[in-house]
Design a protein around this nucleic acid. Structure first.
Length: 275
DNA sequence: AGTGTCGCCTGAATGC
DNA sequence: TGCATTCAGGCGACAC
């Protein structure tokens, strides 16, 4: 599932792949994603060129030469498939949107579970747009640090795991990386947020940063094959220390990893190392 | 305002 | 073997 590191990898992949070509046509085969794909996509995109690509939270933002941003979210199962000019391409069952370029290349949005979205936002309005206006800081940016996190958590009763997964606190920390960062920090995911000291918040913020950075680097290793691998990326799943490892020995102390549910999400932790 | 719950959707895994 | 059920997940909508 595309978490922040995967979206970052996809973004870098698309960036490498950008060309002078402009969009010639857009086919929408299934508009019913998490949000309905706006019908004006097919009329507004042709003739435009993608000038740059960046990531904000788990959104890929493709800037067009019309003061407009094509916003893509991958939900749980979304991918972008880059098809090289004249490379044979057969549309698959869950290819919902196909963007054709003048150089005969294609960009394909594939999403079996349809939890993702594609939409257009005016560049000037991106920060006030409903999708973006409530977002907290980027976990890899300077604004996010232990002091900030401590202030944010101070008056929260919620568990610390739920808090760091709240996009208003910090964006892009999904279920997997929340568990991993808490393990590395030696913090029990059930701890009430207000209970964490500034030192613990420093440690947690730092580990959120490093675990995401390491995952991006692992994803980056497949960057070269980006177009060929249909957006599949990364080997970081082989480095999970707690996520999905219920009953398996803790990598630090051999105590069996436990699973519990917080806010309807599976959480994994070591009862020995995380207090 | 903060918090908890629901629902969208499909495929994989599990149960009978 | 095949059918039915359960689960996973991001995140907005909604209720309290």
């Amino acid at each position: 599932m595309p978490e922040l590191p995967e979206v970052e990898t996809i973004t870098r992949g698309v960036e490498q792949w950008l060309s002078e070509a402009s969009i010639s046509s857009v086919d929408v085969y299934q508009p019913k994603l998490r949000q309905v794909v706006p019908s004006h996509l097919t009329t507004l995109l042709p003739g435009k060129r993608i000038t740059s690509v960046r990531r904000r939270a788990k959104y890929l933002c493709a800037e067009l030469d019309s003061e407009t941003v094509l916003v893509v979210h991958f939900g749980m199962s979304g991918k972008l498939v880059c098809v090289a000019p004249n490379e044979p391409f057969e549309r698959q069952k869950h290819d919902h949107v196909v963007i054709h370029f003048t150089d005969k290349s294609q960009l394909v949005y594939r999403d079996p579970r349809r939890f993702g979205l594609l939409t257009l936002v005016e560049s000037a309005e991106i920060n006030t747009h409903p999708l973006f206006c409530k977002l907290g800081p980027e976990p890899l940016g300077n604004e996010f640090n232990g002091h900030y996190l401590h202030e944010k958590l101070l008056h929260r009763k919620q568990s610390v795991k739920q808090a760091i997964m709240d996009a208003a606190v910090v964006v892009g920390v999904g279920n997997i990386y929340a568990s991993e960062a808490l393990f590395r920090s030696g913090i029990d995911p059930r701890r009430p947020s207000y209970e964490l000291s500034e030192v613990e918040c420093e440690r947690l913020a730092s580990n959120i940063r490093t675990v995401l950075t390491e995952a991006i680097e692992a994803g980056g290793s497949t960057l070269r094959d980006f177009a060929a691998t249909s957006g599949e990326s990364g080997y970081f799943q082989h480095r999970f220390q707690v996520y999905g490892r219920e009953d398996k020995p803790c990598v630090q102390c051999n105590t069996p990893i436990q699973r519990l549910v917080l806010g309807q999400r599976s959480s994994f932790y070591c009862p020995q190392c995380q207090q």
